[in-house]
Structure formats: C-alpha cells, structure tokens
Write a protein that binds this DNA or RNA. Structure first.
Lengths: 170, 170
DNA sequence: TGTAGATTGACAGCATACTGACAATCTTTG
DNA sequence: CAAAGATTGTCAGTATGCTGTCAATCTACA
C-alpha cells in the first residue's frame, strides 16, 4: 500500500502553519500596542511588569518572571530600564540578603493609571477585524491552549504557586 | 447616569488580554519548535527563510523579508548565519549591482528535506491540547485575523506583490 | 553544627525584532 | 543627459527572549 504523501516543500505550507500564524499575530499585536502607547514610551513587557508589581507590591524578580511568564535573565534589564525611568524601585529584603523587593514609585503608579485607556484601545484593535462572536471564540480557544500548553515553555513556576509566600487577599 | 466603570488594574486583566495570549503562545510555539528541531540547529525564522528561498530561488533579501513577514534589517544577519552554515549562497545580480540573489546550497536543500518531519511534529504539538474541531476553528480564526490585520505591522510589501518580478509558475 | 544542595540576582553570549540612517545604485522625469 | 527620487543592502542602537554560568546566600539534612 502507498505511504502517506510527504507534504510539499513550499512557503504556502508555512502560511497555514500554527507557528507562523502565532509569530505573525504576535508581531502585529506588538506593533498595535506600540502605536497606541507611543506617547508613554513603554513596551508591552514593561507594561506587564508594572501591572504585576502594582498587583503584588514587594514581589521579587524571580517571582515576577513567573507571574508575567517572562524569562528571568532578561527581566533584570527590563527592571533596570523601569528603574532608570523612575517607575520602579528595588529595595533589599531585610530577612534575605539575596532578594531585592520591587515597588512602584509614585510616577510608576501614575503612568500606569494614564496608560490603561491606550492599552485597552490596543487590545480592542487587535481583534477588531473579527465579529464579536468570533473574538469571543478566538480568545476562549487561545486561553485554553495557552493554559494546557503551559508546561511547554520554560517558566519556572506557575503564577499561583509563585505567590504563595505573599500574604495577599484574592 | 453612571459612567462606565474603569477596568481594575490587576495582572488578571492581562492574562485575559489578546496581547498577552498572543505573546505567550508565540513563546510556547518557539519552545516546541526548538525542542523538536534541536538536532538540526535551525531557528523558526531560519527555517522559514530556507523554505522561502527554496520556493523562490534567486529571490533577493528585500523580497524575502516580505515573503516571510520578517524585518528587512534583521534579515541580513539571519542570511549571514545561514551562509556561515553553508545552507545559502548569495550571488550579485548581473543587471543590478545593488541586489544579491539568494539560492540554497546542496546542504541547504538536504537539511530542508530532513527537518520537515520534525517541523510537522512541532506544528502538531502546538495544537495537540485542543480537540480536532477546535484546532480547525482556531486556525481559521487566526488566519482570518492575521490576513485582515496585515497592514498593521511594518511589512513593506504583500507577499504576492513582492513576487511579481519573478517569472514563476503557480 | 557543618556541609551539600537549592535559590537569587547578575552576567556572557547568541538570535530575533524594530527604528532610523547611510552610501551605492537604479529609475524617472524635466 | 542631468537631477530628483526611489530602492537595496548595511549598519548603529535599543529591547526582548533564550541558554548557560557564577558568586553570594539561604535551607535542609546528616
């Protein structure tokens, strides 16, 4: 019996592949974000870091990397840049000399409040070409897929587990 | 009448946002690709470039950047690395001294044939957590969204337009 | 208690991604 | 034909994103 035919080696196969569509959409999403938020000079990652620090004041860098699913190595330089802009401050933890605790500065909290509407606009624009029902369906499937694939990429801790030490409500 | 309530400033809002889900899924997709293809030492972008050059032999760098939706500036170094591995060669175009034409070497064509099964496995793994009908729905929505958002990110030419000068069948 | 192992932040090194600029070259137009 | 404008590849600069390593420090166990 004949073996399964091997797929053709053409760029068209790439265009329909999940990996290509995810890369392209990420590219588009960043582009839209930067456009809507250009007045604030904040990247998507810097924004995520600010939000996470706002939600969990006094978090350390390792836990922050888990919370926003961001590489621990790169996070150092991200925090450095946020520190240089005076949006974040790093204080050594008294009970553990290795750890540096992260807090928003007044400026950091302020810019966060100001940028939110622009971010909302950006998020809406990404899905705008779809019909409302399709947006809902896509977001549902993406949330499901990301959750079920969570182990696939190197994130040391799940967000919830990372926060067990912080006495937080909700 | 009351104004629309402003959204809460918490990290949970980020987790449900399109931008976060796209970034996270891209992260996961690259991770799966690298895992399945680690024997070949090729990145997703390098793979896309090889496929595109295979489909369009003699393409130049600017058109290649349009075909794989990849930044023109970065593409130079990508090609350099492919050249260093002896997968691609660059020849000056006789009728236009600015242009360098791209071709696969024998090694390049060979590794492309060999890596295809691994790439297929990677692509399948990305969607594996979903049910078949859900995979189809997600890919349909993603293809639609990427297509309709195509103008949103800086890709100088649409792929089809970029290829008008190449006498190609199909 | 003392030491093996784990954790933390920092760093080196590589590979995307993007903006903006530039000289060399080609094309268009007066 | 000459000048204006467009195109091409390249570079500098910034910001992710990843692997791997390291010293300082903390924890757990013998």
């Amino acid at each position: 019996m004949p073996s399964k035919p091997s797929p053709p080696i053409t760029i068209d196969a790439v265009y329909a592949a999940p990996g290509y569509l995810f890369r392209r959409m990420q590219q588009i999403a960043v582009s839209i974000f930067m456009e809507e938020c250009k007045a604030f000079d904040l990247t998507p990652v810097q924004y995520a870091a600010l939000i996470a620090i706002h939600t969990h004041p006094g978090i350390d860098a390792t836990r922050l990397s888990a919370v926003i699913a961001f590489d621990r190595s790169t996070l150092g330089s991200v925090i450095e840049r946020l520190q240089a802009k005076d949006f974040v401050e790093r204080k050594p933890a008294p009970e553990d000399k290795r750890i540096k605790l992260l807090h928003l500065t007044k400026s950091g909290a302020a810019i966060l409040r100001e940028i939110i509407p622009a971010v909302e606009r950006a998020q809406a624009r990404m899905l705008e070409p779809l019909k409302p029902a399709e947006r809902k369906a896509l977001m549902g499937l993406m949330a499901q897929l990301v959750d079920l694939n969570n182990e696939a990429s190197r994130v040391p801790l799940r967000a919830e587990d990372a926060l067990e030490h912080l006495g937080k409500a909700g």
